[in-house]
């Protein structure tokens, strides 16, 4: 018989002594629920507040109640019809999707090779990419700027995507390799005996078994460009190429408090789809992470 998880705090282990402890049990239960509820409030209040602010018709965030007394959708309307917001959304969606596809392709194939083949320099390569990615990258941006300029990729989305995808190779490779290592090698050996090529084994056997880690890599690389405001600011110059994070950052920090509520509405519009994606896929993400990263 297997008892499913029972951490230390709330376990009723007393067996036949249980009756004597009903009062203590009750107290402990109370404490647990009080903690659960208090913590939920702490988690939720900022979320309610930003949603409330986005419904506040004025332009100050600092209304006296969490939910404004006369909520209105005016900011959403302004954003969607009378600003560059839809354009930023489209740009970001495009960059994020491309980054996701390129990253998944690059990092799964790299991780597969590192996981399944033994070749000269394998270990030192793995260590090198791990260490290289820890180099503080702000100065590097000057070099990237010049490099993109010479390649004619400055102020293009392609340039941005290349930089994003490359930057993510090391981390992704490591977690994907960790996951692939957990897939029994007997599976690909059997296929090899049947005459399957390297590529067939990879696409037909490994990838279908690696769904959780692929979901994880796809999702993190999809959401990355929604949050980065430093790199686009350097690479993208024209207003029609801007991304959401750039636009939102300017609203929240640079506009002398005048566009706070507009920021709130924009933030809600960005956060909703991404949050839903995460919550919907959380099982895969956790599984991918635990198998890929915990046992590195």
């Amino acid at each position: 018989m297997r008892k499913k998880l029972v951490g230390g705090l709330g376990e009723s282990n007393m067996g036949n002594k249980k009756k004597k402890n009903t009062f203590l049990d009750f107290i402990r239960k109370m404490i647990i629920y009080i903690l659960l509820i208090t913590l939920s409030f702490i988690v939720i209040i900022p979320i309610i507040w930003i949603i409330g602010s986005s419904l506040n018709p004025g332009d100050t965030l600092f209304s006296s109640t969490l939910i404004p007394k006369n909520p209105s959708l005016v900011h959403y309307k302004t954003l969607l019809t009378n600003s560059d917001f839809p354009l930023w959304y489209k740009n970001t969606l495009k960059i994020a999707t491309a980054n996701m596809i390129v990253s998944v392709f690059l990092s799964t194939s790299t991780a597969y090779v590192f996981s399944r083949y033994r070749f000269m320099g394998r270990k030192s390569m793995l260590m090198t990419i791990l260490v290289l990615q820890m180099f503080p990258s702000f100065l590097a941006m000057t070099a990237i700027y010049v490099l993109l300029l010479q390649l004619g990729l400055l102020d293009t989305h392609l340039g941005l995507i290349l930089v994003y995808a490359t930057g993510q190779i090391p981390y992704n490779t490591w977690v994907a390799k960790g996951y692939f290592d957990g897939i029994p090698r007997s599976m690909d050996e059997a296929a090899k005996i049947d005459g399957a090529s390297n590529f067939t084994i990879f696409y037909k056997i490994i990838l279908p078994l690696a769904k959780p880690i692929i979901t994880f890599i796809a999702l993190t690389n999809f959401t990355g460009p929604w949050m980065d405001f430093v790199l686009p600011k350097l690479i993208l110059r024209s207003a029609d190429k801007k991304t959401l994070a750039m636009g939102l950052y300017d609203m929240a920090v640079h506009q002398h408090n005048t566009k706070f509520t507009l920021f709130a509405a924009g933030a809600v519009l960005v956060a909703i789809p991404i949050t839903l994606l995460f919550v919907y896929l959380q099982k895969h993400i956790v599984e991918g992470l635990t198998k890929g990263a915990v046992k590195i």
Binding site: L5, G7, G8, L9, E11, I32, L36
Partner: peptide, 8 residues
């Protein structure tokens, strides 16, 4: 621990 404790 809170979320996973037995009687929650």
């Amino acid at each position: 621990l809170l979320v996973n404790s037995g009687d929650v």
